[in-house]
């Protein structure tokens, strides 16, 4: 293909106005058409483009290529109004990753099936699992088992308590509504479909308080074993819903508040390695 354009070439003034964006739509469009075919004008226009602008554009392209797009959850959090740096830190928690959420859905499907068709045992099963879902999520959101770079992260100025609470809030927001929804879909559960929320929150608060002493996964295992023992023994005695008796619900609320108080008082110990490995 010929590069001849009938001898006409853009003058320096037109080129500089085009680069500044002052050439006007008609002149700009025809110059663009011309530039596509004329190598000499393409060479000359390069001199008019400011170098810092080019560098900045190149920088952005390179940044996009290396840094990649933020994760889906991170983008969602930013859209919900969470500051971008916090969103990045929250989205790193293993229990907020897609694989964990898939695990949650699978869990809910089977807990729902068991609760719907399993009679009294199904009810026990639901009461056993539902309050432990947020506990497991929080246990795998913070600490050396959830974050292999925990020790390096501790040595940074970012407040450890803030990180723990941000991730806890995100885990609760991600796990409680699906469990609640699944529970409400099973008619056999009646009022227990909602009442489990109180022990769930209380156990989560206890986990946070205990994580100032031992790593969260260990505490979660202990809380899980304790809760399992309570529900199964209630179920064997007569009625699994005994763990949701009104007096106990009050006790859960009180325990939860106490646990949060302990967390506030002992939050300093979150800033160091609790038990050295």
């Amino acid at each position: 293909m010929s590069t001849s354009t009938g001898g006409w070439h853009a003058d320096e003034d037109l080129l500089s106005r085009y680069v500044r964006g002052d050439a006007g739509p008609v002149a700009a469009a025809s110059l663009e058409q011309h530039l596509l075919r004329c190598a000499s004008c393409r060479d000359r226009i390069a001199a008019h483009v400011p170098v810092p602008l080019l560098d900045a554009a190149w920088e952005r392209v390179r940044d996009e290529a290396v840094a990649g797009r933020p994760r889906r959850l991170e983008r969602l959090l930013v859209r919900l109004g969470v500051p971008a740096p916090d969103a990045l830190l929250v989205a790193t928690a293993p229990s907020l990753r897609t694989s964990w959420l898939v695990g949650l859905v699978v869990t809910l499907v089977f807990v729902g099936l068991g609760a719907a068709y399993g009679g009294d045992r199904g009810l026990t099963f639901f009461l056993l699992v539902a309050p432990l879902v947020p506990v497991a999520g929080v246990a795998f959101a913070y600490g050396p088992d959830a974050d292999p770079s925990h020790e390096a992260a501790l040595a940074t100025p970012y407040p450890a308590t803030r990180l723990l609470l941000l991730r806890t809030a995100a885990v609760l927001a991600a796990s409680l509504p699906p469990v609640l929804l699944a529970a409400l879909l099973v008619p056999a559960l009646s009022w227990t479909a909602v009442a489990w929320l109180l022990p769930a929150l209380s156990l989560t608060a206890a986990l946070l308080a205990a994580s100032t002493w031992v790593r969260p996964t260990v505490t979660a295992a202990a809380l899980g074993a304790g809760w399992t023992a309570a529900v199964t023994s209630a179920s064997r005695a007569a009625d699994p819903t005994a763990v949701l008796a009104p007096a106990l619900l009050v006790a859960y609320a009180v325990l939860g508040c106490l646990a949060l108080l302990v967390l506030a008082l002992r939050s300093r110990s979150l800033t160091t390695l609790g038990s050295p490995s």
Binding site: A67, R97, S149, T156, Y158
Partner: peptide, 20 residues
């Protein structure tokens, strides 16, 4: 020194930079 799963090299250092 472990690394949280799913990060690229850049992403991990970027994560640490946010903490800093």
């Amino acid at each position: 020194m472990g690394h949280p799963r799913g990060f690229t090299g850049f992403g991990f250092v970027d994560y640490m930079a946010v903490l800093k």
